[in-house]
Amino acid sequence: MRVLVVDDERGLTRALQRGLGAEGFAVDVVHDGDSALEAATSVDYDAIVLDIMLPRRNGYDVLAALRDREVWTPVLMLSAKDGEHDVADGLDLGADDYLTKPFSFVVLVARLRALVRRPTGARPAVLTAGDVTLDPSTREVTRAGSPVDLTARETSLLEYLMRHADRAVGKVELRDHVWDAPGEDLNVVEVYVGYLRRKLGRDAVVTVRGTGYRMGG
């Protein structure tokens, strides 16, 4: 899942980029409100982690501008403030969740996964495609009831394919949502699809000629 992290604390953003990357997220980082608005309106992110106190344009203004432009990407707001009015202001502007600094990284990851599961309130708690299941909260994968051991990146690739099981997904889209670097060689997608097929069975992921991949039966 591709996530935008917006915070002017560069040490924090470096730590989040490393940590979220290890959890299978693809992470972009910006450090001011103007850059956040530009990024969030030009890239299709799965979630945004947005600090309130930012240079140029604060997080409240960024959030309000996004919602005014009908950008409904789930937003998890971060703040050093924990007053109930601060929380209420963020939620009233359209934030989906709120976390106070300092925070637990484990909790942040859990909150992000929860947001990605329900950006419109319609996504199922457990994803199913044929006899393959994936629980986004626990990252547990099964096929025909048997557990399958996947790496974090393999799981993220599978999750994206399963969330879009109604269509074929192109290599560029998969790369941009599953890997940290949009410039990554597209061959990496083929390699990881091969890993999934070896672990789940060759029919689990189907190649759609000229388009990309989709979940099989």
Rank of each mutant, 00 (worst) to 15 (best):
V62H: 04
D89R: 15
G90F: 06
R67H: 09
P124Q: 00
S104Y: 00
D68C: 11
A88S: 11
D96W: 03
L93T: 05
A122V: 11
T73M: 08
R56W: 12
D86T: 12
R117A: 14
A80D: 01
D68E: 15
A125H: 12
L99I: 07
G83N: 11
V109H: 02
S104L: 03
L91G: 01
L76R: 03
G94A: 00
V109G: 03
D86S: 12
W72V: 13
A80F: 04
P124D: 00
F103G: 06
L78I: 03
T120H: 13
R117E: 14
R113F: 10
A80I: 09
Y60H: 15
E84C: 05
G94Y: 08
V75T: 07
E84Y: 09
L112A: 04
A122E: 15
D92N: 14
P119I: 01
W72D: 15
P102N: 07
P119N: 05
G59Y: 06
A125S: 14
R123A: 13
K81M: 13
F103D: 03
A80E: 00
L115W: 02
L91F: 07
V75C: 07
T73A: 09
E70C: 13
A88M: 14
L63N: 08
D68H: 11
A110L: 13
F105C: 04
V62G: 05
K81A: 11
L78F: 03
A88C: 08
R118Y: 09
L63V: 09
F105I: 02
S79G: 09
A122T: 13
P124K: 01
L112K: 04
A80R: 05
G59I: 06
L78N: 02
V75P: 03
L91K: 02
M77I: 10
R111M: 13
A114T: 12
N58V: 08
A114C: 11
A95N: 04
R113E: 10
L78H: 02
A110F: 07
G59H: 03
R56T: 10
R117Q: 15
W72T: 13
Y60C: 10
D86E: 15
L115I: 06
T120S: 12
M77Q: 08
P74K: 05
S104H: 06
D68N: 14
R118K: 14
G121Q: 10
L99P: 00
A65C: 08
T100L: 05
E70P: 14
L76P: 01
F105Y: 13
N58T: 08
K101S: 06
R56K: 15
V126Y: 00
V75A: 04
L108G: 05
L93G: 06
A110V: 07
R56P: 12
A95R: 01
V62N: 03
E70S: 14
R69N: 15
L99Y: 00
R123S: 14
V109A: 09
L66A: 09
F103W: 04
L78R: 06
S79Y: 04
P74F: 05
L93K: 12
V116N: 00
V62Q: 00
V107D: 09
K101C: 02
G83H: 06
L66E: 07
W72S: 14
A65Q: 12
